[in-house]
């Protein structure tokens, strides 16, 4: 049997994924998109609307901010930067995830 990626499960963590991408520096929209595609080996059919919904949600909540870059050539890019509130949310979400994963694994194990 071939393992298949559960896109739904990933989609539920879009906010945390975006925050993770921003932990080590500002990035622009397509950059984040490309990195997600790379890291999932093209397995994840991420739609752009999912990503932008997440940006807008996080920005509204004050977890990230955005600014236009000053590219001298080519199209302008909009960059996203994580805020302190965003870092805190990321750490909290990671904790939640690890905790949930442990319990989920426990639940999914065959009963003996």
């Amino acid at each position: 049997m071939e393992p298949k990626l559960s896109s739904d499960l990933l989609r539920g963590h879009t906010d945390t994924i975006v925050l993770a991408m921003l932990m080590n520096g500002d990035r622009y929209g397509l950059e984040i998109y490309n990195r997600i595609l790379e890291r999932t080996g093209g397995q994840y059919e991420l739609k752009v609307d999912t990503l932008y919904s997440s940006y807008k949600r996080l920005e509204k909540g004050g977890y990230i901010t955005s600014y236009w870059g000053d590219e001298t050539q080519g199209a302008r890019r909009k960059y996203y930067r994580i805020t302190d509130k965003g870092r805190e949310l990321y750490r909290q979400n990671m904790l939640n995830w690890e905790f949930t994963l442990k319990i989920l694994n426990n639940l999914l194990k065959e009963e003996k």
């Binding site: 991420l46 739609k47 752009v48 609307d49 999912t50 932008y52 919904s53 807008k56 949600r57 509204k60």
Partner: peptide, 13 residues
């Protein structure tokens, strides 16, 4: 095609 359904984002904005 990769864009998906932009109406949800647009509704927010």
């Amino acid at each position: 095609n990769e864009l998906g359904d932009m109406s949800a984002v647009a509704d927010e904005i």
